[in-house]
């Protein structure tokens, strides 16, 4: 069979094959690069996911704690109200003891009241219900705590509901 040669005497068939192979190598390289990239992305995604799952577990634990504590905080509020209203000294001191014990229990679990009386109003921890005219307290500061607020570490469980001082 007669061989087909070009001007330089190279074998055209060979050239064609080599060209096709080069092309295939190029394609495979590209495909490999894409796959490598995808693999790395998946790895990174997974790594980020894992980290977030850890964070979310923490958040979830806090969330559950928060929900339970929030339900319990209601009773602290009842005690506060009761102490203000109960006249009978024996009953009042009984209430006082219960309230104190309950407070200690929550304290043990990291619950702290939001300090607000006399401090400048801060919506990060307080919910403003309205103004009261008073000279007792500088304007813009909390003059009255309607409902106590509580924190668990840095987490706000319940904002303090407050009345803010205004010049009469």
């Amino acid at each position: 069979m007669e061989e087909t040669k070009d001007n330089q005497g190279n074998n055209i068939v060979e050239n064609k094959i080599s060209h096709a192979l080069k092309k295939e190598v190029e394609e495979l390289r590209q495909e490999l690069a894409e796959e490598k990239n995808r693999h790395l992305r998946t790895r990174a995604d997974f790594d980020n996911f894992r980290k977030r799952v850890e964070r979310e577990m923490d958040a979830k634990r806090n969330q559950i704690k928060k929900e339970i504590l929030l339900d319990l905080l209601m009773f602290l509020d009842y005690f506060d109200q009761a102490k203000k209203q109960v006249q009978d000294p024996a009953a009042a001191s009984g209430l006082e003891i219960m309230a104190r014990q309950f407070n200690e229990l929550l304290h043990k679990h990291g619950v702290r009241p939001v300090e607000c009386l006399g401090l400048p109003f801060d919506p990060e921890e307080q919910e403003g219900l309205g103004f009261v005219a008073t000279e007792q307290c500088p304007e813009g500061c909390v003059a009255e705590e309607v409902c106590s607020g509580y924190k668990l570490g840095d987490i706000l469980l319940k904002p303090a509901q407050v009345m803010v001082a205004k010049k009469p």
Binding site: F121, E127, G128, L129, G130, F131, P159
Partner: peptide, 12 residues
């Protein structure tokens, strides 16, 4: 202020 914080001071 944006969000919950803004809402808490709305009445004032």
């Amino acid at each position: 202020l944006v969000g919950q914080v803004a809402k808490r001071q709305a009445a004032l």
